[in-house]
Design a protein around this nucleic acid. Structure first.
Lengths: 131, 131
DNA sequence: AACACTATGTAATAATATAACATTAAATAG
DNA sequence: CTATTTAATGTTATATTATTACATAGTGTT
């Protein structure tokens, strides 16, 4: 884990992402934190980059959106897995020990020096399955 | 598998992607097929959408790039895995039977009706590891 | 021929992300 | 404590990626 102390902008952005509690896009963040003095996209993107780096948030690549990490100050920002509902766009972070262990083992066998993976499952969440 | 016959634009775009044989971005495709009469981004994006849908190509989500499917007319466009070198950006498609079986089983156990997944490993490829 | 369906053409614009440069704050080595 | 380096900030402009909207043309039915 890296540095614990966040800068002013990093705190503002993280607070917002944690508050909304669902995948949030950079420009939506920007609009919502302008009252806190964040004026430009770059201020948001810089904070996002750093927050991803230290595992406080994750990027949902297929959606260009960001969510707070649920795995208690994520040690595992380098091993992320999500399920994404294609109907309501609900995203939840998967923390399945066996899965992450399996993928870690898989990484080690392959010819590449891996240091990270991201897995996204797509489908219908329980609610949307019923409808 | 869906319809085999590709339209004119779809052929042009697929041919190009297969020719370059590495992840290629939409606007790079556009620039390179303009001599074939493709003039606008939308023509590219529409063909890309369709080609992804029928499994002829895949999108590397973390790179906003597209590659031709290597798994013989991909039956498995719904189950994709890639390794990505963070140094040279080389991407290769992983076709590991055990891995896809494991992830398929995992999907079935979870509370969601999955119908697709995408897995991206990041690290250093063999060449770049040596350097 | 009428209908549905898929694909196309074109212009405009939206949404996502970075480059470049100047400045300030924080961390740490001498 | 102050010089130096490192991280963060502020700001403007611009690059990159992707979609909306609307008109037209081809293809395959029934």
């Amino acid at each position: 884990m890296q540095k614990e102390t966040l800068s002013k902008n990093q705190k503002i952005i993280l607070d917002y992402i944690e508050k909304v509690n669902e995948p949030t896009k950079a420009y939506s963040i920007l609009h919502n934190v302008q009252k806190k003095g964040i004026k430009a996209p770059l201020q948001v993107y810089r904070a996002l980059d750093r927050l991803v780096e230290i595992g406080k948030i994750h990027k949902i690549e297929s959606r260009n959106a960001f969510v707070a990490c649920k795995n208690s100050n994520c040690q595992i920002s380098k091993a992320t897995a999500f399920s994404i509902c294609e109907s309501c766009e609900e995203v939840s972070e998967i923390s399945d020990h066996k899965l992450s262990k399996y993928l870690k083992t898989f990484q080690e066998k392959a010819g590449m020096k891996f240091n990270k993976y991201n897995l996204e499952f797509f489908g219908l969440c329980k609610k949307c399955s019923i409808k």
